[in-house]
């Protein structure tokens, strides 16, 4: 019961989507697959909410039990509620509610969440520079290729670097665009995409057939 029902659900929902590929969208099975995709969005939305509820529970429990850093956890809880509660209240009550421009949700996103996200990613610039120092040391043929390509691409992507490359004999920017980005780079991306897609397809088949059950967890 605890395992069989979920396996049957996964099989039926998966097989309908696969079979529907061979039917027109206007057919019964085509329509059913479209409906299942809408259902997926709804259930998927609830899984995201489950994640937020889980974060709230963990932080709340940490505050109640006075775990190390409980003061910071209060800030997390306040931030969650400050962003979430006004966003789910109807705009008819107040223009500050909902998600429109001028709402509390929008103000917090524009003035706090968005700049903090950009800063977090900008901080990575320093760590990526440190990683580059280690990765770009020309200790072998492979790392030398990595060093040359990365350096040339970085130069090529800034106006001053492009001007420098243009001063050299031959059309280096055009060569980079055609043979490095559109040739070698694209070939590798294609190889990786083909390999990963075959892996994803085989994993999908295992899930539909009930061979892969690790997503259910233990018990």
């Amino acid at each position: 019961m605890r395992t069989t029902v979920p396996v049957i659900v996964a099989f039926l929902s998966g097989i309908i989507l696969v079979v529907s590929f061979f039917f027109q969208e206007t057919s019964f099975i085509g329509g059913l697959s479209q409906e299942l995709k809408v259902w997926l969005t709804i259930v998927g939305g609830f899984t995201l909410l489950l994640g937020v509820v889980s974060i709230t529970r963990v932080n709340f429990s940490g505050v109640v039990r006075r775990r190390p850093g409980w003061g910071y956890k209060i800030l997390t809880l306040i931030s969650i509620f400050a962003m979430a509660i006004p966003s789910i209240l109807p705009t008819s009550w107040s223009p500050l509610f909902g998600r429109n421009a001028g709402s509390i949700y929008d103000w917090l996103f524009v003035n706090l969440d968005s700049p903090m996200m950009a800063t977090m990613f900008a901080t990575l610039a320093f760590y990526i520079a440190s990683a580059a120092y280690r990765a770009f040391r020309a200790r072998s043929a492979e790392s030398t290729i990595l060093l040359i390509t990365a350096t040339v691409v970085m130069l090529w992507r800034v106006p001053m670097g492009e001007a420098l490359l243009n001063m050299l004999p031959g059309d280096i920017p055009s060569f980079l665009n055609t043979y490095v980005m559109g040739g070698a780079n694209m070939a590798v991306q294609r190889g990786i995409i083909i390999g990963a897609a075959l892996g994803a397809a085989s994993m999908s088949l295992r899930i539909i057939l009930g061979i892969e059950r690790t997503y259910m967890g233990k018990g």
Binding site: P6, F11, S13, G14, V18, W39, I207, Y215, M216
Partner: peptide
């Protein structure tokens, strides 16, 4: 909770396979 999870996995697998 495995039932909705299995539904998500099944539909996603069906979409992915094709």
């Amino acid at each position: 909770s495995r039932i909705p999870l299995a539904f998500v996995m099944g539909v996603t697998a069906g979409i992915f396979l094709i």
